[in-house]
């Protein structure tokens, strides 16, 4: 089982967290075109490689954070809580 380094709690079993998938910016709902919005809703980069994604530490600190994960090797790096700067957190063991 993947060990996911929560910026608060430290490395945790992936099963202790919820996976929210690829991070992507939300378009302004008042001005966006259907194409913009549906790109946001449905289209994904889905790379075989590094991916910035969002996790929720649902049984631990209950914080959402983003992290980069290599979708082929499972490596994880630079977990970030929303609003904080990259590298400001501890928690990498890899």
């Amino acid at each position: 089982m993947l060990l996911v380094p929560c910026p608060n709690c430290g490395p945790r079993n992936a099963a202790d967290l919820s996976y929210n998938g690829e991070s992507h910016a939300r378009p302004d709902p008042t001005t966006c075109t259907p194409e913009d919005w549906r790109t946001y809703l449905y289209l994904r980069d889905n790379p075989s490689g590094w991916l910035r994604e969002s996790w929720y530490c649902s049984s631990g600190c209950r914080k959402h954070f983003t992290i980069e994960r290599h979708t082929l090797t499972g490596e994880l790096r630079t977990p970030i809580l929303p609003g904080s700067k990259p590298g400001a957190t501890k928690g990498e063991t890899k």
Binding site: C9, A15, D16, S59, G60, C61, R62
Partner: peptide, 8 residues
């Protein structure tokens, strides 16, 4: 002793 955390 004194540690506290959330877990399943």
């Amino acid at each position: 002793n004194g540690a506290a955390w959330g877990n399943s």
